[in-house]
Structures are given as structure tokens and as C-alpha cells.
């Protein structure tokens, strides 16, 4: 069985692992400690110390701090409780007319702004473009992933987290506050 080291995973993340090695990684049995190696690498790369519980995207992480679980960007900007869609705490730029769409799509590439809008979610801290949605007006933002963190750590990794949080989408609660 092939063995993959932390350095291989680092190269993989950076897109510089040679293709034969990537193929080997694809074809071989997976390394059972990959998650731990991955977290270790990511933890070393961020400029802050809180423990990464789960990487949500290459830029966003759920971190643990004082019993809370918070979505945090690589740059350190925080987006709040992981059970609330982080997009509601981001900056947003929406291209919903020809002028703004034409900055990205030219001529025949142009979609029809009465059918679709392009939403760019931007980190207020570092200006990273975290996600782009292309949806018709009226579509709520996708809550891409709400993890069942406690089940994951307790039952799949076999090491329960020191505290627990209810597996529940709290986004509607925030929206209710906005409505009030």
C-alpha cells in the first residue's frame, strides 16, 4: 500500500504534486489519517491560533473558541455561528444589469439579467471572492453546507468534541431578527 506523507498532501493542496503521484493517490487505498494531516497543514498556514474543526472551503474554516464554533476566513475575519449561513455576514456585489455583467461577460457571452443575477460574496477582511452564485432573482442564498459536527467527531472520528451544539439551521432566526 502506498504511503502518503504530509509533504505530499501539502503539494497536492498547492497544485504542485506531480501527476503520477496524484494518480497514485487516487488509485491507492486512502490514508486513514488524511483529515488530521490536512488540518495540521491548514492550521500551520493561518495567522491565528484557534483550533480548526472543519475546513468549509479552501478559504473558510469552522473554528472552536471558548465553547463557540465560528466561521473564520484565512485572513482572520469572522462570520459568526457556523449554523447561520455565513453569506449573510459577508459583503455582496450583485451583477444584475448589462453594465455590471459586461465587466465579466462580453458580447455573446452575456447572460440575460432578467433571468439571472451573479452574486459575488466577498470577505470584508481580505477581499477574497469566497463564492459566486448565478441564480434568478428571488432565490435565497444557498446554505452550501451545514455540518453535523458532533456526529462527525463523535461517531465518525471517534473523538467527541468537548462541548455540543444542536444540529440546526439558525439562518431563519437571523432573518427573523432582521424582519423584526
Amino acid at each position: 500500500m502506498a504511503e502518503f506523507h504530509k509533504a505530499d498532501v501539502e503539494k497536492l493542496i498547492d497544485g504542485v504534486l506531480p501527476w503520477p503521484a496524484v494518480q497514485d493517490m487516487m488509485k491507492s487505498a486512502k490514508d486513514t489519517d488524511r483529515f488530521d494531516k490536512y488540518i495540521e497543514i491548514l492550521q500551520e498556514r493561518v495567522p491565528w491560533d484557534e483550533q480548526i474543526l472543519l475546513p468549509l472551503t479552501p478559504s473558510l474554516f469552522i473554528i472552536a473558541r471558548h465553547g463557540a464554533r465560528v466561521v473564520k476566513c484565512r485572513c482572520g475575519h469572522e462570520f459568526g455561528d457556523y449554523r447561520v449561513n455565513w453569506k449573510l455576514s459577508a459583503l455582496i456585489h450583485v451583477r444584475d444589469d448589462e453594465e455590471s455583467l459586461s465587466k465579466v461577460y462580453k458580447g455573446r457571452e452575456m447572460p440575460d439579467p432578467t433571468w439571472v443575477q451573479v452574486r459575488e460574496y466577498i470577505c470584508p477582511g481580505c477581499g477574497a471572492q469566497l463564492e459566486v452564485e448565478a441564480v434568478p432573482r428571488g432565490c435565497p442564498p444557498d446554505f452550501d453546507f451545514l455540518p453535523d459536527l458532533d456526529t462527525f467527531y463523535r461517531e465518525w472520528l471517534g473523538r467527541p468534541l468537548p462541548d455540543t451544539a444542536q444540529f440546526k439551521d439558525l439562518t431563519p432566526d437571523l432573518v427573523a431578527e432582521w424582519r423584526a
Partner: peptide, 19 residues
């Protein structure tokens, strides 16, 4: 033909419509 696909993960722009 009217919309771009709404894929494009992690901040990428989606491909254009088929023309």
C-alpha cells in the same frame, strides 16, 4: 442560452451560456 450555469465553486465565475 439565457443564464450562466450557477456552478463555479469557491469564488470562480461560471461559464457563459451556449451560443
Amino acid at each position: 442560452s439565457k443564464i450562466v450555469s450557477n456552478h463555479g465553486m469557491y469564488g470562480a465565475y461560471p461559464t457563459w451560456p451556449d451560443a
